[in-house]
């Protein structure tokens, strides 16, 4: 049963549909602008999910992981595999996506990343190489064909917030976007809890702050590195699972999210995990707002340019407390 190609992905990606309505009505209409901002919530969710894993690997471990997009892609493929093999619901595949990508992440840490600690540029290159290899292997196994993932039927449709007298929707948001942002916030909460309320999280933060001292105090730093990296990759896998039904699943899909995820992490700063939320909110909503006035590609270019300017003046991110040198 591999005929998911017939089932159309029910949600158009990001904000394209809303832009169309804006153009149709002509001029800046308040309601369609609100709709556009609500659609922006969907983008925020995607960005938050994709950025969160990166915030762990980059923020906590200082690893420049350019294979992050490929871990997202792996998560999406795990979901596809689970669905086509066991007819599993998308929600149920999320733990498998997490475990699958975390496993690949652990293997990566053991074989590649571990050898390159303290050499950021080499890590960057190695992870690029890795991303090409992962793409190649996935292409070998699943072929380059687009795959489609079915979204659960009970979260299709729109939540109507405001309707006209005749019942046509005025302000609405699709349940899927709400679902994405809910999962994203849930993952953020879980990560925060793990990092700040558990002994393991304390060890992770200790290793991030002062590796040698942590080692002296008996923390098994290499195990912590392994677990942290695997967890970051697992989060990417969850992102992939949730995103998989938005667009088709294909080997190069991760590349689309890589640059965006990096922009989120760089904008928010990695000092506090909450920066990722702020970063994704800022980028997602400004993208939606600019796209409403102009159009999608131009919005993307403007946002990217703004982020470049931001990196120039605040490479540590917007929401980082200035530390004394």
């Amino acid at each position: 049963m591999l005929d998911f190609g017939l089932i159309q992905a029910h949600t158009l990606y990001l904000a394209q549909d809303a832009t169309a309505t804006a153009e149709a009505s002509g001029g800046i209409d308040f309601y369609s602008f609100v709709n556009q901002l609500l659609n922006g919530i969907g983008i925020v969710g995607v960005l938050l999910l994709t950025g969160l894993g990166l915030a762990i690997t980059f923020g906590v471990m200082r690893i420049i992981n350019l294979a992050h997009g490929e871990f997202i892609m792996l998560g999406a493929y795990v979901t596809f595999l689970m669905q086509s093999a066991f007819q599993m619901d998308l929600l149920l595949t999320i733990p498998f996506a997490f475990l699958g990508t975390a496993l690949v992440g652990a293997v990566t840490e053991l074989t590649v990343i571990r050898r390159l600690y303290g050499r950021p540029l080499e890590t960057l290159l190695a992870t690029w190489g890795l991303s090409i290899v992962i793409q190649g292997v996935v292409k070998l196994i699943f072929s380059a064909q687009l795959k489609y993932v079915k979204s659960p039927p009970y979260i299709s449709g729109n939540l109507l917030l405001m309707t006209r007298q005749d019942g046509t929707p005025l302000i609405s948001i699709s349940y899927y976007r709400l679902f994405i942002i809910a999962i994203a916030l849930l993952m953020l909460g879980i990560t925060l809890y793990l990092l700040y309320k558990t002994p393991l999280g304390r060890q992770v933060r200790a290793v991030a702050q002062n590796r040698d001292m942590a080692k002296c105090l008996g923390v098994n730093t290499s195990l912590i590195d392994l677990l942290t990296f695997a967890y970051g990759c697992g989060l990417a896998g969850i992102a992939g699972a949730v995103i998989s039904s938005l667009k088709s699943v294909s080997p190069p899909m991760g590349q689309d999210y890589l640059v965006d995820a990096w922009m989120v992490v760089v904008t928010g700063g990695v000092d506090k995990l909450i920066g990722v939320l702020a970063g994704s909110f800022l980028i997602g909503e400004s993208n939606a707002a600019i796209a409403y006035v102009l159009n999608d590609p131009v919005a993307r270019v403007i946002v990217l340019a703004a982020v470049i300017v931001l990196i120039r003046y605040r490479p540590e991110g917007l929401f980082t407390v200035q530390k004394r040198a």
Partner: peptide, 20 residues
């Protein structure tokens, strides 16, 4: 701005210009 961030900036430039 240090080395790694410059690389990320070049990535963003490439991505932005492609879109443009």
């Amino acid at each position: 701005v240090s080395g790694v961030y410059i690389t990320i900036i070049t990535l963003a430039i490439s991505s932005a210009l492609t879109t443009l």
